[in-house]
Write a protein that binds this DNA or RNA. Sequence first.
DNA 1: AACTCGGGGCA
DNA 2: TGCCCAGAGTT
Length: 220
Amino acid sequence: MLNKSQVQYCLDVMKEMYPQAQCELDHANPFELLIAVVLSAQCTDNLVNKVTSSLFQKYTTPEDYLAVPLEELQQDIKSIGLYRNKSKNIRKLCQMLIDDYGGEVPKTKQELMKLAGVGRKTANVVASVAFNEPAIAVDTHVERVAKRLGICRWKDSVLEVEQTLMRKVTKDEWADTHHRMIFFGRYYCTAKNPQCSECPLLTLCREGQKRMKKKNAAKT
DNA sequence: AACTCGGGGCA
DNA sequence: TGCCCAGAGTT
């Protein structure tokens, strides 16, 4: 298992691999961030980014999403997939924000998870990025990367992965951790056919070492 | 833990 | 074509 300084090294390397143009979502206000992350479920980020720029011009408050017919909102987000569920969820979510939170986005992940269409991952992203709350978002990419590198155990649950990460990452980088690991997992440490031989973290990667050994054995 | 939801991207 | 995707909700 990787110790704290090794994990820190991994995150430093991932930071350098991360493109200059940081995720625009970082700079959005909490409400826009929340909407964007809810929309991003099960579709790629650049697909969502295509929609959000025009979406956030048209809709700026929870009331705005409720002011138009459902069909109009569906049309506006149609191109990202799952738009029927997502548009309904967003309206439900906005209604809850108005009714229960005075139109503001709640700050803790416990409150965020009560909202429609907001699960553990979305709640953690919004809480940590927008409000600097103690949380690290874990999705399939983060989980895979953490397990391959040896940050946590293979059989750890999502919750255990999250807790291990919070133990091994310094507090002021919690908000950034999921962006780096997700990007690394999406474009380098891919689920299928990861290019381990070109990976800068190969020397300390548990799974990478195993794969390279296998590859060499197959050659000879 | 397993299943469903589903449009677009990509090979 | 067929498979996959920065998940969440329900059973």
